[in-house]
């Protein structure tokens, strides 16, 4: 019963959600879908707490055993629990000036900084990886050249105002890229459906704990 009940709940709930998405206008299904959406919000909030416990377990062990990089783990836990307790017991909400300071003056600039550093990594990675070692690598290099010049005004400036690079970059995005991306997206969607069906039918039981045997 330990496994049968959760599997039955999973199957019934998944079935209701799928059917309610395809057959709109049925009062009972719409009400159930709303209810499930609300439950999802609660589960979503609980998942954050589980994530904190999980992080604390992993990094706590690393600190306790003084493994390599344990100082970073300690810093992570200090920041995580620091923000958590201060927000709940001192700031008591997101309107407090202290919370705003922590969020807008620390987290927000750090977020922007991490994203900004990408330009350096991309520059260095492009220099090292775009070597014409084969015909495929050569094609990749030519496409990269066209895209990089076509997506900035520099391309037109080099050609005396001619928009050839921009036109070629636009074509690459609309035709070969779209064809490839569509294939990837359809493939990923089919993979998602297959996984969902496996979970729904009880073939994939990893979420119950154990090995699914």
């Amino acid at each position: 019963m330990k496994k049968e009940v959760p599997l039955a709940i999973c199957f019934i709930v998944a079935l209701i959600y799928i059917v309610s998405n395809y057959f709109t206008g049925v009062e009972f299904l719409a009400t159930m879908k709303d209810l499930l959406d609300k439950w999802y919000l609660s589960v979503d909030a609980i998942v954050v707490a589980i994530g904190m416990v999980n992080l604390a377990q992993i990094h706590g062990r690393r600190v306790a055993n003084k493994r390599e990089g344990w100082l970073f783990s300690l810093w992570l836990m200090l920041c995580m629990f620091g923000m958590f307790f201060v927000s709940i017991f001192w700031f008591k909400g997101t309107t407090h000036v202290g919370w705003n300071f922590m969020y807008k003056m620390i987290i927000s600039p750090m977020n922007a900084t991490v994203y900004s550093t990408l330009v350096f990594y991309i520059g260095s990675a492009a220099y090292r990886s775009f070597r014409i070692r084969s015909m495929e690598a050569g094609i990749l290099l030519v496409v990269a050249f066209i895209m990089m010049l076509g997506r900035v005004p520099l391309g037109a400036m080099l050609l005396g105002g001619n928009q050839a690079f921009a036109t070629a970059a636009d074509w690459l995005l609309r035709v070969p890229n779209s064809a490839g991306m569509r294939g990837i997206q359809i493939g990923a969607a089919l993979g998602g459906i297959a996984t969902a069906l496996r979970i729904m039918l009880g073939i994939e039981r990893g979420y119950l704990g154990g090995t699914g045997e």
């Binding site: 520059g123 900035v152 520099l154």
Partner: peptide, 11 residues
Amino acid sequence: SFSHGLILLFM
């Protein structure tokens, strides 16, 4: 534009 130009130059 110039950052793209620099990357292309290095490539």
